[in-house]
């Protein structure tokens, strides 16, 4: 009996996290389109609701009432499973994101590894969708995306090692607390830049949106999807982007820490600061989408393997030797 009440307590906490995440995903889509439009001197969605804020809700409503078409030659089970996998993996990772010292669903010892593992699983939704569609363009998109995400994960993993060298713990709260005096974005600035670009590639955002390059592949792995299943891919993609922004702000921008430790700023809760940092990174994501042309595929691979990987590996050596020489290694 007490076990059941325990489960209900957890479900309550999870809902309190996931419903705001889903709503903010919808809002963030609107923000993305708006920023994109302003860069191009357009208005963007501004009709539905004040400033067009309800545009995403209207879109969601449209997707819900559209017919779901399943191609007759597709592999039906995997075809239906693919958007579910994408969506679930995008949401499941939020369990370890700390919004303050105590506001976290699962404060586990290996938090950063969990985040990394879940984001590396994200490729399966795309691969499953592309393969199960049994069609040329989705398959090509899926293959591209698999190669791209695996390559950029490597550099993200090595960047995480850089941060962990300075922290000495895999716990996300410890990583945030270690930045009390100095955010890691200052000593590890080159790593922050590489992390940002790799996060763009990891979430298939422009300029690395080759899996869904509309000029070559129609819509890549989403070509055969319609209605709510397409919307789930879409929501999962944006939830993943927000997650990457959250990861970036925890690793480099001090997570829930306040930037200024002075009187009026101390009163603002840590969750608000984290949300501000996530939104700032997302704003950069949206700007990049508007101002950068798409990469060619071989350039993408070259950037990942020949530039980012050696650079971040070298930086690991530099960080480790610096910490060792000045006796700053976090030994507990």
């Amino acid at each position: 009996m007490e076990y059941i009440s325990l489960i209900f307590g957890e479900v309550y906490k999870i809902l309190f996290l996931l419903v705001p995440v889903l709503v903010s995903v919808a809002m963030v889509v609107w923000l993305d389109r708006r920023v994109w439009a302003f860069v191009q001197k357009r208005q963007g969605p501004n009709v539905v609701g004040p400033f067009g804020l309800l545009q995403s809700l209207a879109d969601a409503l449209k997707y819900i009432f559209k017919e779901i078409i399943i191609p007759s030659s597709s592999n039906k089970v995997i075809f239906i499973l693919a958007p579910i996998v994408t969506m679930t993996l995008a949401l499941v990772a939020w369990a370890v994101i700390p919004f303050s010292q105590t506001q976290v669903i699962a404060d586990i010892n290996v938090g950063i590894l969990y985040l990394f593992a879940v984001s590396s699983l994200g490729v399966y939704g795309i691969i499953m969708g592309g393969w199960a569609s049994n069609s040329k363009y989705p398959f090509l998109g899926a293959i591209r995306s698999a190669a791209q995400m695996v390559s950029y994960e490597v550099s993200i993993g090595i960047i995480i090692i850089n941060v962990l060298l300075c922290v000495g713990s895999l716990n996300l709260n410890d990583i945030v607390v270690a930045q009390q005096n100095l955010w890691f974005v200052i000593p590890l600035f080159p790593m922050f830049v590489i992390f940002f670009i790799s996060a763009l590639a990891e979430t298939n955002r422009p300029p690395f949106d080759l899996p869904e390059a509309e000029a070559e592949l129609v819509a890549g792995y989403q070509t055969e999807y319609s209605g709510m299943m397409y919307a789930m891919f879409w929501l999962g993609e944006y939830a993943n982007i927000l997650l990457m922004c959250a990861m970036g702000s925890i690793l480099f921008l001090g997570g829930w820490l306040s930037p200024i430790e002075l009187y009026p700023f101390n009163l603002i809760p840590g969750a608000i600061w984290l949300i501000f940092k996530i939104l700032f990174l997302f704003f950069l994501f949206a700007l990049v989408k508007a101002i950068v042309p798409r990469y060619r595929y071989d350039q993408l691979m070259r950037l990942g393997w020949k530039i980012f990987l050696p650079l971040s590996l070298t930086w690991v050596v530099i960080t480790a030797s610096y910490l060792f020489y000045f006796n700053l290694l976090p030994i507990n």
Binding site: N109, S120, A146, V150
Partner: peptide, 24 residues
Amino acid sequence: EFLGMIMLIVYVGAVAVLFLFVVM
């Protein structure tokens, strides 16, 4: 927990993707 996460990252995140790649 460390072994479990490494299992996920290495086998599921990388090795199985390459398996899928080859099989497809």
